[in-house]
Design a protein around this nucleic acid. Structure first.
Lengths: 226, 226, 226, 226
DNA sequence: TATGAATGAGCCTTCATTCAT
DNA sequence: AATGAATGAAGGCTCATTCAT
């Protein structure tokens, strides 16, 4: 008996099971949506059993909320590593756009989960306590870069951070969220690396170009306007 | 009263019933997705009964395919009324962008249905015989405008029609497809008309600006920039 | 207008439709049983429509009863053409056995319909007014042959007509009613003509042999036995 | 009371539930056929619930196949207890015939299930992996008895085992499979014990008589017949 | 903590039958 | 006489969830 417990399952097994369930659930919800996902499938894929799921997450919807929170946390967590405040405004913007494009490319489950949540009119997102803090400083961060760029003449002034962010985000998101229908419509395969790279470059250019000051407008001309 | 009965719809009208079912189904699939939609709900909402649905559309999936086809047909049908070929390139582009933005705004079901179809990896779209012809000339149409603009100096040259169209389409699509999560994140309501109008204008500007030739590149300007 | 009605459908169309429905129903009930048969399928196969079926036969069960009656009528009708009373007893019996064997071979629907009716414990047969008269003289007919044979020394005496008829009928019926499972079990194909012929000959022999008087029993042989 | 609880069936017992479902299903399929049987009725009768049926047997057809296999297994299992090889040929045959007759009498579900399976052209039987082995030695067993009987002069020679077995089996099978229609036709009740006994004796006699060598053929007898 | 067994509600689908023309 | 449209009831099957061990 003595010392035997060390040989048996490690004590953090519970935490591990939770995690395995969450991962499997993320895949299942991303692949099938909330209504299409099967609790059985999640139990099987996570090598846990259904009772555990209910133990840890209450019910299917609770599990879905947990998946949603984790999905947002991963995304914003990565975004925060960009350290945009430390960069030159143009460089910061380029990095932000690229991050958005690349994240959508690398994380199809992010797209799927968000699409599904929008189908449900963000009902679960509103229940997710951990999400709002993640975005608390987002507008400010973007706004600060835009202002710095405006101040040093790199950007036009008067650009609204939220509107700009939405436009910026849309470019990578849509390409991937709609890649199956678009591929069918254009009779090509958007998943091909070359196709994606070309689009990505164009998207970056498009966003940055949008920030460039108008010729002879933002570059003060004598006494000011009016 | 007299002669009035001829005007009222006959109790038995196959075409009308088909149509009522299709309309109700479009709403239900848009609101709940394929898996979440209930055949019962569609029967009730269409004032038909379940048996009729199976009579006319085979099964739930067949009905979904029909909805998908009708949804695409409406969209491309409207798009074709723009008569872009007859317009000045810049004006044509502005109209195309505006159409895309406004259609997404006016037709939330278009967004939902497409999102759902992408969840299913366009499986049903590939079965929909009537869809490919709708897009047969899309790339050519865009390409022709871009070329005309390139020829008269209004646009940069070398822009790929498909990439450009995807970028263009993404701006309105994403705003609406993700309006619920974005509204939650930014603690605002993207459905407000003013918010939408402001975004819309910026999106138009962004796309058109992207087409404008580079200073000193397409139109050489003395010394050049360093 | 004049004389035109001759060109249109013949007046006996109704009778023809009834008949087409009955034939199609016989095939459907034989192939699928009462529960498995589909009114739709019968309507389609008879090139009539469902309303006609209900017009002529009341409902599915009424149609089934009609099929049952027609099936028995055909069988006994053919049997009556054998004119057994006019034949030598041995020849009459041979002919009766052969008829039973061959009818089962030629009319699989007879087997199927009867099997199905037995599944229903002859519930519909009891409702079928036209059937009892068909069998009114069956026992007497068999009994008469047996008696004639007994009298002229060709058959043993004391054979019960009903028991004998059942045994006789079983040989052809079972071979065909169970030909699919038997074919699977014996890994052969009972539908092959040669296989059937060989069985048929043996069955005839078996029945006739059964009628032959015992040696030294029915034909007293000197002083008694042993 | 003490220790008694170990003996009572546990509330959760998969094997028992499986068995209860199978038994109830056998009764239902025998009474109504595959198409007429109701999964609901089986669930109710087995004191299980529908979900369990699908858990254990996949679907209605899977359950039906299981019933079919169990039905054949019971029959052949009993048959194998006859130990025919150890008996005198005549006695062995008598026992085999009696067994067949009595089994059909005692197991109406055997008849019904087989009839139904033949309606489906043995489609499910072919799927039933466990059935072919049950019959692997059937022909050989019968053949061996016939040969032994031929060798010691008790039987005619040249009798084909399969044909003989089919004829033998038909006698009991048909009487019971068609007892409802036959009872109606002959206006008697074949279920009455006396009626059955009398038939049974005659059937045994018929089969055994068929095996007896011909007079003056197998055992040459002076002048011969003309 | 972990798990196989069990369940009731509900979903998609089908069917026999009737209505309106 | 004939037909396409319509319907309510029910059947097979699935799912999220809970029970008993």
């Amino acid at each position: 008996m003595l010392g035997n417990w060390m040989v048996t399952q490690p004590r953090r097994n519970a935490e591990l099971t939770r995690r395995r369930i969450l991962d499997a659930a993320t895949r299942e919800f991303a692949a099938k949506g909330l209504a299409g996902a099967r609790v059985d499938a999640i139990a099987r894929a996570s090598r846990a059993n259904k009772r555990m799921i209910y133990q840890y997450y209450g019910n299917k919807e609770g599990l879905y909320v947990a998946v949603l929170e984790a999905t947002y946390a991963r995304f914003r967590g990565r975004e925060r590593t960009l350290r945009l405040a430390e960069l030159d405004p143009v460089e910061a913007m380029r990095r932000l756009v690229l991050f958005n494009l690349d994240y959508c490319h690398a994380h199809p489950e992010f797209i799927s989960i968000l699409n599904n949540e929008n189908l449900h009119r963000a009902r679960h997102l509103k229940r997710a306590k951990s999400v709002p803090p993640l975005h608390a400083t987002l507008t400010e961060t973007i706004g600060a870069i835009l202002e710095r760029g405006g101040a040093n003449g790199a950007f036009r002034s008067g650009i609204d951070p939220m509107r700009f962010y939405i436009a910026l985000a849309s470019l990578g998101y849509f390409y991937h969220s709609n890649r199956h229908t678009l591929s069918a419509i254009f009779r090509t395969d958007l998943a091909r690396t070359a196709t994606w790279r070309a689009y990505r470059d164009e998207a970056v250019a498009m966003v940055l170009r949008h920030l460039v000051p108008e010729r002879g407008v933002d570059r003060p001309r004598g006494r000011g306007i009016k």
